[in-house]
Design a protein around this nucleic acid. Structure first.
Lengths: 344, 344
DNA sequence: CTGTTAGCGCATTCAA
DNA sequence: TTGAATGCGCTAACAG
């Protein structure tokens, strides 16, 4: 009968050593790959490990100089958003490929929470950080304040912070999406977006406005709704747009949450008897499942959140190799694709 | 000028102590709440902490007997699925409320990966585990093998493993969903589900079959498709169902992925000119965004993944209090609601 | 090839 | 109220 973990406490390297009749160092060496340990001794050690259910204490291990913790801190604004779920998945995958684990925190767009999380991550000796910044001040993110732990920003950048970042081609995507609407003959185009302080919101508005400007159209303030963070408020904003005397014939939605809110409002109106022809066409920055089944045409500015996560993790891990640990900040801008609603 | 982290290394308690002109113990006491430290000394210490950018090393701290790591290990089958993203969010929220952080791993339904992840989590001295089990053998999950670290299973149970679990009312939900189809006059009802080894797949099929049996209907093997794990294969399965000479007039889909796949196939047929009246009604176990906008009626067996996560975390944390650390296994079954497609 | 010594950062215990 | 000694689990450096 094996005698796993009698006391509820984890067995230590010393207990394994005693069990195998060797010194702790021999156990350590065996677990580190077995260099300079006789094969038969290794077998004895490994048998003892199995019998006792021993797991090397990574925390104690990382205490030694030169031993990294194997942890990556990941702080995300909203895990409940499928977009960020996929992003986290991408980070996790690449981290796992490199033997790292992720410690995950949700900031909920709250800068104070972000600050706490990062402080905690540092205390846990993470090797690096991946952050979707929630906006606001950047002082706690300066490299010195992080003890020179590498950080990669994702989706958004922070003004005045010169670190690696992975962004989308927000401006270009929004520009092309808006152009598509203009080319289809729309001139009154609504805009649904984030609060101004959100980096992507700003950039996507920029692409939107640029496309209009090229056609000599000044954005109508009534048609620009920029304060929505969730589906409910997005729906309200869409309602306001559609209730205008001179309602837009098309709407540019600058993210997932706004698109879903807008479509919910459209669904309500259809059920209330509205005719599809009265309802606006939509271009959505961010894809979503089943977009092709929507009752109004929804073109999608698509991109792969998981790839974004993978790229962020790759940037970060490249800083851990030691070579370019302190190289100049790199900016990766991932392409987006504009797909009409009919494709799948 | 403050002199944060000169060498790229994190400052230690000793450096803070030297900076403040006290002993390391005084720093430790101050950070632990400040009992038996003179207020003015505390101020000096805290000033030194700020100036040096000191973060207590949680790994070293947890090395001391009686000090927990503050980590919860969470292993999920697929973070990319919005359902599990929300689940993870729920776990994270409650963990954070109790000062815990989560270490997250994605198993991808791979038992080997699950085993590695859990071994790693134990090595990181997690205080507890939350697991969406990927099926298969359960030996590595037995309490002794986990060194008596509390574990909570979510969504699925593992045969032969008597530990805390949070489940949905799979059987009841599937039963009621199927009943609703029967009451609407359907007698040929298709079933889209998971591979047999998945716990929820089994349970949901059970509810489905029970409802049919009550009406004296034997499930037609042609109508039962149970091998789909992703959207693509679900779509193929739906295609097979609809291509039958005697195609079903309604389909029960036992999860999110299957529902999306089924709807994609429906979308394809609509675009190819099919008439809505020829297409089956759908009941979906698992809600999804914009279900109310689908071209065919989709009733939804809904539940809150985030709540499921919160409940799992609560169960786990109650085991960490020390009181009922070793009480009998508890089973929480969360209710589900059946909502017709017309509601929002 | 194997073992001994020492110390990583911290907090408990004991002494002052 | 403060500090010194000690050891948590592990492994680099050295000795054998």
């Amino acid at each position: 009968m094996s005698e796993v973990s009698q006391g509820g406490r984890q067995p230590t390297i010393r207990e394994v050593a005693a069990h195998a009749g060797v010194s702790p160092m021999t156990v350590s060496r065996t677990l580190a790959g077995g260099v300079n340990v006789r094969p038969d001794v290794q077998q004895r050690v490994l048998a003892a490990v199995r019998e006792l259910g021993y797991h090397r204490n990574e925390n104690a291990r990382s205490l030694r100089p030169g031993q990294a913790s194997g942890l990556i801190g990941v702080a995300i604004t909203n895990l409940g958003n499928p977009y960020y779920g996929n992003f986290a998945l991408g980070v996790e995958e690449v981290a796992a490929e490199y033997g790292r684990r992720i410690v995950l925190g949700n900031t909920g767009e709250d800068p104070a929470r972000e600050r706490q999380l990062i402080a905690d991550f540092i205390g846990r000796q993470v090797e690096g950080l991946v952050l979707v910044p929630s906006g606001g001040a950047s002082d706690h993110l300066q490299p010195e304040r992080l003890g020179d732990i590498p950080i990669v920003l994702a989706s958004r950048r922070v003004y005045g912070l010169d670190v690696d970042a992975v962004l989308l081609d927000d401006v270009g995507g929004a520009y092309r999406g808006t152009r598509a609407l203009l080319d289809a003959g729309h001139t009154r185009i609504g805009f649904l977006g984030n609060v101004r302080s959100v980096f992507t919101g700003q950039r996507r508005y920029e692409g939107f406005a640029r496309a209009l400007a090229e056609r000599g159209i000044e954005p109508d303030p009534d048609l620009v709704q920029r304060e929505q963070q969730d589906v409910e408020s997005a729906r309200d904003a869409m309602r306001r747009l559609l209730d205008l005397d001179d309602a837009p014939t098309a709407v540019f939605s600058s993210n997932n949450r706004n698109t879903v809110g807008a479509l919910k409002e459209i669904g309500r109106r259809l059920k209330a008897g509205a005719d599809v022809s009265e309802l606006p066409a939509i271009v959505s920055f961010d894809n979503f499942e089943l977009a092709e089944l929507m009752p109004v045409p929804v073109a999608v500015i698509d991109h792969d959140a998981r790839q974004l996560g993978r790229e962020a993790a790759r940037l970060l891990l490249s800083r851990l190799g030691g070579v370019d640990r302190r190289g100049p900040a790199r900016l990766v801008e991932m392409p987006v694709t504009l797909a009409p609603s009919s494709t799948d």
